[in-house]
Simulated scan of single mutants.
Amino acid sequence: MTNMSKTIIFFGTDSFSVSALISLIEAGYEIGAVITKPDSRSGRGQKLVAPLVKQVAIYHGIPVWQPAKLSEVLDQIKAFGDVIGVLSSFGKIIPQAIIDAFHPGIINIHPSLLPLYRGPSPIETAILNGDTETGVSIMKLTAEMDAGPVYAQEIYELDGTETAPELYETLSALGGRMLIETLPSIIEGNLLPSPQQNDAVYCYLLKKENALLNPAEMTAVQAERQVRAYIQFPKTKLAYKDGTVIVTKAHIVTDDTHEDFTVAFKDGSSLTIDELIAPSGKTMSGQAFTNGINSTLSEQAY
Results as ranks from 00 to 15, higher is better:
Val150Lys: 05
Arg228Ile: 11
Leu113Met: 14
Pro149Gln: 09
Ser194Pro: 00
Gly130Met: 14
Leu192Asp: 04
Lys208Thr: 06
Gly189Cys: 04
Leu171Glu: 08
Pro195Ala: 08
Glu133Phe: 08
Ile109Cys: 06
Ile98Phe: 07
Glu169Ser: 11
Ala173Trp: 00
Leu191Thr: 10
Arg228Glu: 04
Ile109Gln: 10
Glu209Cys: 08
Glu209Ser: 13
Leu174Phe: 01
Ser194Lys: 15
Ile106Met: 14
Met139Gln: 13
Arg177Met: 11
Glu217Trp: 02
Leu205Met: 12
Ala216Arg: 09
Ile187Asn: 01
Leu128Ala: 02
Asn214Ser: 14
Thr161Pro: 00
Ile155Met: 11
Met178Gly: 10
Gly175Lys: 06
Asn108Arg: 06
Gly105Thr: 05
Pro215Tyr: 13
Glu124Trp: 04
Glu166Met: 04
Pro165Met: 02
Asp199Thr: 05
Gln196Glu: 07
Ile186Met: 06
Tyr168Pro: 00
Ile180Asn: 13
Leu116Arg: 14
Lys207Ala: 02
Pro122Gln: 01
Glu188Lys: 15
Ile187Glu: 03
Thr125His: 15
Val136Ser: 01
Ala164Met: 13
Leu116Pro: 00
Thr132Met: 08
Asn214Tyr: 00
Met218His: 08
Leu116Ile: 13
Leu116Ala: 09
Pro184Leu: 12
Ala229Pro: 03
Thr142Glu: 10
Gln197Lys: 14
Leu167Asp: 07
Glu154Asp: 02
Ser121Ile: 02
Leu113Trp: 14
Arg177Leu: 06
Leu116Glu: 15
Met139Arg: 10
Val227Asp: 09
Gly175Met: 07
Leu116Thr: 12
Tyr117Thr: 02
Leu167Asn: 02
Gly119Asp: 08
Val201Cys: 08
Asp159Asn: 13
Glu181Ile: 10
Ala152Trp: 04
Pro165His: 06
Glu157Leu: 09
Val201His: 02
Glu162Ser: 02
Leu141Cys: 04
Asp131Ala: 12
Glu217Ala: 09
Met139Lys: 10
Val201Met: 12
Lys207Glu: 12
Leu179Ser: 10
Val201Leu: 11
Thr163Tyr: 12
Glu224Trp: 05
Ala143Pro: 03
Leu116Asn: 11
Arg228Met: 14
Thr142Asn: 11
Thr219Cys: 12
Thr163Arg: 14
Phe90Arg: 07
Leu113Glu: 10
Asn210Lys: 03
Arg118Trp: 05
Pro120Ala: 12
Pro215Arg: 06
Leu174Gln: 09
Ala126Asp: 11
Cys203Phe: 05
Asn198Gly: 01
Pro115His: 03
Gly119Lys: 03
Ala164Gly: 07
Leu206Ile: 09
Glu209Gly: 02
Gln96Lys: 14
Glu124His: 07
Leu113Pro: 07
Leu114Asp: 08
Leu212His: 12
Lys140Thr: 00
Gly176Arg: 09
Pro122Asn: 05
Ser185Cys: 00
Pro95Trp: 06
Ser121Phe: 01
